[in-house]
Design a protein around this nucleic acid. Structure first.
Lengths: 235, 235
DNA sequence: TCTCATTTGTACGTATGTATA
DNA sequence: TTATACATACGTACAAATGAG
């Protein structure tokens, strides 16, 4: 049995204190200097612990301001950051995106509920195709609150990146609130667009991403080609 | 426009070199010392870049050995430190289990590799059916190292619980190392056991659980009926 | 089996840059 | 403008795991 690193013990202590309500949503944690003093360690050791918390989506650091507890820590464990485009690149493939539709329209009941908008509010919708090595791997649909991001469609058209477009819209960082996964079989339309047979297996993910304040910024669906993609979750 | 941090530029360079096939799956990257020398920076700056690559699932470091490019680039990493909140069986439903087979046999190549056992080592296998409201929702197969857990099959038969059986085998706690998710269609056998049509969508999860020392204790497959089950990952 | 050089992991120290309040 | 606080980047030292001999 190996000894627990100091930074991990500190991360664990802080996580528990957040879970116990010692610090609440939006609260500022003590400064790195104060935490260093409290735990009797170097500032960098505290920083390693804080990096862990941020990585888990529990906290968010603002340079010059402090480290703040993210919204909804009671649902706790563990948040995650998902950047689809980035991950495909990291996987050593050549990612590409093809825009299918860009439009603004009234959101349906499901979309406005997911984005915490009033019924009938306008949403901007980005539908497209993800390709790796010139082979389609996924269809996706991203829905954004139109009022909050008035230029999102043109930003998406230019940047082809949800992360970059949201950043231009003032959202420097976002985290995935939830993901739902189901297996489906491809409809005729989906099969055509993905270049697979009708009835082939499809992995559908439905997700909500929120800004650091916990406000939903994107409601997304992705349909992965089942036998070309494996989702990997590591602890 | 803020200047790009050096560590980010290095991470980007290395990512591109991996994507370009300069390093391949399983290859060892140059040592931290060599990379420091190459980029003309301190070792810690290289470490910050390597941390980013590891965080994206691109590489994996082994102390004393080196940093290696992760295998299977078709896998799709959706983030580290994610755990199932597993509300997967809706609240109020009473999950039930039915044993299909209990046996000890030589493990195949995949099983022994996943459990870090020598080739041909004996494994104990537990196959069964999960039901909710008398309706099958999943098939599962759990594979254990037979030598380490000599009584696991009788324990499972009595307890019907992997957690309880492992606890009796001396594993007080275990954690999920990884989960892989893919969409499949049901084979004839699976369709029969799950009471669905052949070709119906199936969500397959493949997972590895390890004890606190990191030694694998269970290699599990689960096949969920696609339209009866939604996996939910919450942060 | 044991030693030993190599390599990554942890922890501390110092300095400076940059954004915030 | 100024003090505060996080971000980056350099450095040193030792611990722990690996792998070759």
């Amino acid at each position: 049995m190996t000894r627990t690193p100091v930074w991990r013990a500190i991360a664990s202590t802080l996580t528990n204190e957040i879970a116990d309500g010692h610090y609440r949503s939006g609260d500022k944690l003590p400064t790195e200097a104060e935490l260093s003093s409290r735990f009797g360690v170097n500032r960098h050791t505290v920083r390693r612990a804080l990096a862990e918390l941020a990585d888990q989506g529990l906290t968010h650091a603002r340079r010059g301001a402090g480290v703040f507890v993210m919204a909804d820590p009671t649902d706790y464990p563990i948040g995650k950051r998902v950047r689809f485009h980035q991950n495909l690149l990291a996987a050593g493939r050549m990612p590409d995106r093809r825009i299918l539709t860009l439009q603004t329209r009234p959101g349906d009941a499901e979309e406005t509920a997911a984005l915490a908008l009033p019924v009938g509010a306008q949403v901007s919708v980005y539908e497209g195709l993800s390709l790796a090595d010139n082979s389609p791997v996924a269809l996706f649909r991203s829905v954004f609150p139109a009022q909050r991001f008035p230029t999102i469609l043109t930003d998406l058209e230019q940047l082809l990146s949800v992360t970059a477009a949201l950043e231009r819209g003032g959202v420097a960082d976002y985290t995935r609130v939830s993901t739902r996964l189901t297996a489906k079989t491809a409809s005729a339309t989906q099969a055509l667009q993905l270049g697979i047979a009708e009835g082939a297996p499809i992995l559908r993910t439905v997700s909500v991403n929120a800004d650091p304040d916990g406000k939903p910024v994107e409601y997304g669906h992705t349909w992965f080609v089942g036998d070309r993609i494996t989702l990997v979750i590591e602890s």
